[in-house]
Design a protein around this nucleic acid. Structure first.
Lengths: 175, 175
DNA sequence: ATAGAACGTTCGTTAAAAGGAACAACCGAG
DNA sequence: CTCGGTTGTTCCTTTTAACGAACGTTCTAT
């Protein structure tokens, strides 16, 4: 295992803990593990057992894989990380993505199939997005739906942006 | 850690290995772990290290959480499964969830903090959702935004429903 | 039948993860 | 200013996961 993954696990662990207002001692006690153990993990050293990870994930109320999934991830070459949440199988087909964009990056997306629409909800940060030439500025909490069968883009300013994105393919068009 | 999780991990591990035509020895060698180690894991004993799980997940080409996640997903007692995708840290705070509802179930949600809004996008199936008394029928691909500071509900008909859900807390109100 | 190679198991050894106590630093209450 | 409580860290010890070799099996090929 590369040290990178362990380092990000530590960071992620700590930020989740702090976001929920736990102290290290509290979380360790609640999870039933030694706080020395947790301390070491947050520092990025160590190689936790499934048991340990499991107990922490339960307390932090995160779906497990979330704990080990890197935060600052192998970002795509263009500073954008995309994870497929759900691949649609019914009609209309809907694909759902989780997306995170680094500051000062622009991602230009190719048109999807005719009739396709995208709707996105910004979770954190600020983002300019929409069809090319008709973009909107979004703040955390804002939603936007637009036609995705022509070129569209996502652009960040000074801040990171995290968003949920779903692509609805038109009934007749399957990809 | 309960033995159940380890048992299912073992079963899952083995079925994935066989499905891809690996022998135990081959997989162990490819992953760079001792085959005695893998053998023990498939038997449901042991408590693998993150390193070990990681190496196996890479070789089996599964997104990690898949290895430990039970096969039959533990639905909440009310037939609704919810996963936290992202916990907001800025202002306004935005929490994002992935949610899956079994057929013929109704989930009544308590009001969030004053000013909170929810926006959701249906990924698959059909769903009736919204504030109590003002619900809308949604099909896959539809989006809906509504005030979440009063009781609201999600109700399925004959089909499963999968959706993305984000809760935007009002600026002043932190939970 | 018999040597060979693969399979998956079990064993003792070793490396390391988890536990537990002691620690300095910090903070709030009396 | 103390004192008690908490924070997170750093040791040392104990437990145990991972390793590597040896094992009994099975199957194929000679």
């Amino acid at each position: 295992m590369d040290k990178l993954a362990l380092g990000t696990l530590g960071q992620h662990l700590q930020s989740l803990r702090l976001a929920q207002g736990w102290s290290l001692s509290q979380l360790a006690a609640a999870a039933g593990i030694a706080k020395s153990n947790l301390s070491r993990l947050e520092q990025g050293n160590g190689n936790p057992t499934l048991d340990t990870i499991w107990r922490l994930a339960v307390q932090l109320k995160v779906p497990f894989g979330t704990l080990v999934a890197p935060i600052a991830v192998p970002l795509g070459e263009d500073g954008v990380e995309v994870r497929l949440l759900n691949q649609g199988k019914d009609h209309p087909q809907v694909d759902a993505y989780w997306m995170r964009c680094a500051p000062h990056t622009t991602r230009l997306a190719e048109p999807h199939t005719p009739g396709a629409r995208e709707s996105l909800t910004l979770i954190s940060g600020h983002l300019e997005a929409g069809p090319e030439g008709d973009t909107r500025r979004l703040s955390a909490g804002d939603s936007l739906t637009f036609a995705a069968d022509r070129p569209h883009l996502y652009r960040t300013g000074d801040a990171w942006a995290t968003l949920l994105l779903s692509v609805v393919y038109h009934e007749e068009e399957r990809r």
